[in-house]
C-alpha cells in the first residue's frame, strides 16, 4: 500500500523527513533512509530547508525511491519561477515521484545565502493550482501537455498561528486548490490541536499532525522563543527538566510517543509527520513506543 492508498484507506499514516546533506557525501543520509524504510509510509525530502543550500529534493527522492522508501517531494517557491517549478514537476513525474508537498518556503534571510534573489513568482496556493493543471494535462498557461502528471498533492498548515484566522483562511484556499493532505507545523498541545481538527474536519482532506522531538528543556524554550507557530506547554518543559540532562531526550521521545498514541487512539487526525531534525535514527523507536510498530 503506497502513501496515498494508506491515507485514503483510513490507516493511521506516518511520515518522517529525509534531509539532503550539504555536499556529495550521502553516507549518513543513506543510513537514515535504510532505518526508515519499511517502517514509515513515506518520507518528505526537504527542499533547501531553512533556505540553506543543499542537494536538491528531487535527486534524493529518486534515491529514496530506488532504496524502497516512498518519497514526498517538498517544493518551495523560493528558488524557482513558474517555468522552473513546472519543469521540475514534470521531471519528478517521469522519475516516478508522485507525492508533492507545495510550500511557499523559508525566506532567504533565514539561510546561508542571504544575498540571493528570492523568487516567489507564485506561492503555495497557486502552486497547488499548477499541480492540478499538470494533472489535467495542461500547464499553467493552458498549453496542452504531451502526457499529464498524476500527483498526489499536499500542503502545510500552522494550527497554532497567532492570529489563526488568516492562517485558517489560507488553509481553506489550499483545500479549494486541491490539497489532498496536510502536514502541520509541530504541535505539543493536543487539546488545542483538537480545536483545529474540529475546523479541519469540515473539509475532505487528510491531516497529519507534525511532531518535532524535544531533546531538552532548552530546546523547548528555544522553539517557544524563536520558531513561529510553535508553543511547547510549560508542563512538558517541566517534564523534560525533571528527567534531568541525561534522560531529557528519552523523556522527549516519551512525550512524542504518548501524544502520537493519543492522536491515534482517539482518532483525532489521520496520521503524524515526525520531524526528527538530525535524530532520524530515533524515529523507529518513537514509533515502537507509540505502539505503531
Amino acid at each position: 500500500m503506497n502513501f496515498k492508498e494508506a491515507l485514503e484507506s483510513g490507516k493511521f499514516t506516518v511520515t518522517a523527513e529525509v534531509g539532503p546533506p550539504k555536499g556529495t557525501d550521502i553516507t549518513e543520509m543513506l543510513h537514515h533512509i535504510d532505518l526508515l524504510k519499511g517502517k514509515i509510509d513515506a518520507a518528505n525530502v526537504t527542499d533547501n530547508q531553512s533556505a540553506v543550500m543543499r542537494i536538491n529534493s528531487l535527486s534524493v527522492c529518486k534515491i529514496a525511491m530506488d532504496k524502497g522508501l516512498e518519497p514526498i517531494l517538498q517544493m518551495t517557491c523560493r528558488d524557482r519561477n513558474r517555468i522552473g517549478l513546472q519543469s521540475d514537476l514534470l521531471g519528478a513525474s517521469i522519475l516516478g515521484v508522485h507525492n508533492v508537498l507545495c510550500m511557499t518556503g523559508d525566506h532567504t534571510s533565514a539561510g546561508d545565502h542571504k544575498e540571493a534573489k528570492t523568487v516567489y513568482d507564485i506561492e503555495s496556493v497557486q502552486l497547488l493550482n499548477v499541480v492540478n493543471n499538470l494533472n489535467s494535462g495542461k500547464d499553467m498557461m493552458g498549453n496542452e501537455l504531451k502526457g499529464p502528471t498524476s500527483f498526489y498533492q499536499g500542503a502545510v498548515v500552522t494550527p497554532e498561528a497567532n492570529p489563526v484566522e488568516p492562517q485558517l483562511m489560507k488553509f481553506e484556499k489550499k483545500v479549494n486548490a486541491g490539497a489532498n493532505f496536510f502536514q502541520t507545523q509541530a504541535i505539543y498541545d493536543i487539546d488545542k490541536f483538537k480545536g483545529f481538527m474540529d475546523f479541519a474536519r469540515k473539509f475532505d482532506v487528510k491531516v497529519l499532525a507534525g511532531f518535532v522531538v524535544l531533546k531538552s528543556a532548552g530546546m523547548a524554550n528555544f522553539l517557544n522563543k524563536f520558531v513561529p507557530g510553535i508553543t511547547v506547554p510549560q508542563e512538558l518543559i517541566d517534564e523534560l527538566k525533571e528527567a534531568g540532562k541525561e534522560k531529557a531526550l528519552d523523556a522527549g521521545m516519551n512525550i512524542c510517543a504518548r501524544q502520537i498514541k493519543q492522536l491515534k487512539d482517539e482518532k483525532i487526525c489521520d496520521g503524524v509527520h515526525i520531524m526528527a531534525i538530525g535524530m532520524e535514527d530515533k524515529v523507529p523507536e518513537i514509533m515502537e513506543r507509540a505502539g505503531l510498530l
Partner: peptide, 30 residues
Amino acid sequence: KGLLVGPCGGMSDGKCEVSPDVPCAWVRIY
C-alpha cells in the same frame, strides 16, 4: 515574499518572520 494569497507559516504573533519588528502584511490586510 510578496505573497498574494495570504500569510506564510513564518508569521508569529502578527509579526513578519523576516523582520520581527514589522507587522505581517497579511495580518494587516486581514
